[in-house]
Write a protein that binds this DNA or RNA. Sequence first.
DNA 1: GTGGTCTAGACCACG
DNA 2: GTGGTCTAGACCACC
Lengths: 130, 130, 130, 130
Amino acid sequence: MLIEIDYRDKRPLYEQISGKLEELILCGVISADEALPSVRSLAIDLSINPNTIQKAYDALEQKGMCYSVAGRGRFAAAADEVLPAKKREILDELGKVVDKALKVGLTREELTSYINGEKEEKYDTGNQSF
Amino acid sequence: MLIEIDYRDKRPLYEQISGKLEELILCGVISADEALPSVRSLAIDLSINPNTIQKAYDALEQKGMCYSVAGRGRFAAAADEVLPAKKREILDELGKVVDKALKVGLTREELTSYINGEKEEKYDTGNQSF
Amino acid sequence: MLIEIDYRDKRPLYEQISGKLEELILCGVISADEALPSVRSLAIDLSINPNTIQKAYDALEQKGMCYSVAGRGRFAAAADEVLPAKKREILDELGKVVDKALKVGLTREELTSYINGEKEEKYDTGNQSF
Amino acid sequence: MLIEIDYRDKRPLYEQISGKLEELILCGVISADEALPSVRSLAIDLSINPNTIQKAYDALEQKGMCYSVAGRGRFAAAADEVLPAKKREILDELGKVVDKALKVGLTREELTSYINGEKEEKYDTGNQSF
DNA sequence: GTGGTCTAGACCACG
DNA sequence: GTGGTCTAGACCACC
């Protein structure tokens, strides 16, 4: 399956799951209006309680990443419509990190060169929040 | 006082406090070997349970940002000695954010121009973890 | 066709359908005693399970918006006869909204001026319950 | 207690509860930064499962009506900060009702006179969503 | 004590 | 079959 959970991850399970799904939707792996796995099936798949999956889906829906239809299932939102907000969110996050960096004496030059240089020494962001 | 706590912050109190102290030390507001406020006084100062302060100091010490002398109190570590590690830590964090950004289609160019451009529209990183 | 369903709408399908039909009848788009589409044809038309259409028609009939003749089909009620009740129902709804508005400090003046002013900035009430 | 639940109400329990609390906060019955009843105590008070209360509080927090502090409890948000959004929300709702009213032939005059006239024939909005 | 997460198992409405 | 709600009981981190 597309989702794997990492029990060493500090984040709650539901957040891990919704984060991974969000990633899949935003990257286009799951296309717009495509059906997401049902609560029950995903629960069995991941050996996780359905309530937890439900909570993950609720969080996902609340972020606008999917919508549910009574008796039918859950479907992915159009990536185009949520991407801009997500980009803005990530830029905000970037801004905070930059602030912290500047406070400890790193320069903008160091940061930009780091960004443009770091291509090989990748971090495994595997199940990382998205 | 130099420390203010924000009760709407989702992070636990002790983390908020240790984060703020770390910032003060790294930025040089608290100089090397300067005495930190005692657990008791800080607890009174912030109207917070001493146990929480203790926990914050423990976290701080465990990060190497301060050291305690039995019967004398707690003192700030030399910023020079801990700064490199902190810089590396922040760069790691930066790397993760960059990864996320790239995944949603932002380019390195957009990121670097954002970094070099964002000077006025500061975010209030006030009690932000450091 | 005159009816379109919106799968992102939180209301159940049958309610969406009956609501839309009610609107068509009350507005005179479907005139009195005009035949409504058969369960089967509408089901095919909307690519929806006939049971769901049946349920929508049941709800509609129960509201007095149509009547069925055994073996002949279903026909629209006369708008004149059901309009007064509908008006009363909407006024009731209005009353509740007004109550809520007054509780949060909005004044009757603000509400009335809002009503008389809002002509351009229309909301898309498209498939809105009627 | 300030909250009563109505088992005849169609809405889910958690929504009923969060709605009632929202009302209390917006109307100033619960003032800013005042502690809300704890999950457990309210659960006992209403003879409802703590999980349901938790969900109600989650919804409330997600609307910005309160904030929670780990290990301390939950506190009401400042009404001033959320009132404008709530007013706008109610006006939107009003707009939709007005639209429906106009469609069935009611005039703006009828609506405004209804609003300014309906003072005695109050509806019991008791546990009504807010 | 507090909030937050998770499991297990049940029931309902919708399609 | 689907999503959604609710109960019961447990465990954790924080204060």
